[in-house]
């Protein structure tokens, strides 16, 4: 890793961790959501450093963009202040979450220590075959061409459903 790359890595990683702490410690769910966006956008930077351009773009577009906007929208629509029970914790939630996070961390450290090649190896193979985006595009338009096309009817059905279920009663007398 070059010096610049390491600096970028450490800065992005630090911001991502800060964002993560913000998600669990913020009082208002709105700030939690915004912190999560911060974390996700920094993870995208880390993906870029790994040469996974497509995943980086998807991370921004789908997670930080679409999914989190939906989250914030729902939080804003519900008006969280009206639901005081949302702030309450389950009994024993704090120690349990610390324990689970520790197990996850131990698992990741164990996995990396066991076979460090598992991370770096894949990296170079992808780069050799022309970069992440090209490999992905090739797969998308050959092997996975048909499943990709099939998402079109899926989206149409979802749209019909959204219209059919959310329309007011007045409009449905023309059956």
């Amino acid at each position: 890793m070059t010096v610049v790359a390491s600096i970028v890595f450490y800065v992005a990683a630090a911001i991502a961790i800060l964002g993560g702490i913000g998600v669990v410690s913020a009082r208002s769910p709105m700030y939690s959501g915004l912190s999560l966006i911060l974390t996700l956008s920094q993870l995208a930077v880390l993906f870029l450093l790994l040469g996974a351009q497509f995943i980086a773009a998807a991370q921004i577009l789908i997670y930080a963009g679409a999914v989190m906007v939906l989250f914030l929208f729902v939080i804003a629509l519900l008006g969280v202040e009206a639901y005081p029970f949302l702030g309450r914790h389950l009994p024993g939630q704090r120690p349990l979450s610390v324990a689970l996070a520790a197990i996850l961390l131990a698992g990741v450290i164990f996995f990396v220590a066991e076979n460090p090649r598992a991370i770096t190896g894949a990296h170079s193979t992808v780069l050799q075959s022309g970069g992440n985006v090209e490999v992905f595009g090739r797969q998308l338009f050959t092997s996975f061409f048909f499943p990709f096309e099939l998402t079109a009817p899926l989206l149409i059905v979802a749209m019909i459903g959204a219209v059919a279920l959310s329309r007011s009663r007045r409009g449905d007398t023309n059956a």
Binding site: F144, F146, V157, I160
Partner: peptide, 30 residues
């Protein structure tokens, strides 16, 4: 497509397609 799928990808998308349509139809008398 569920009956014809030979790939896990097609099977999953087909499953979502049929399930989504049926969720909506089950609640159609809204």
């Amino acid at each position: 497509l569920m009956a014809a799928g030979l790939s896990l990808m097609v099977l999953f998308i087909a499953l979502e397609l049929l399930s989504l349509a049926l969720y909506i139809l089950s609640g159609f008398e809204r």
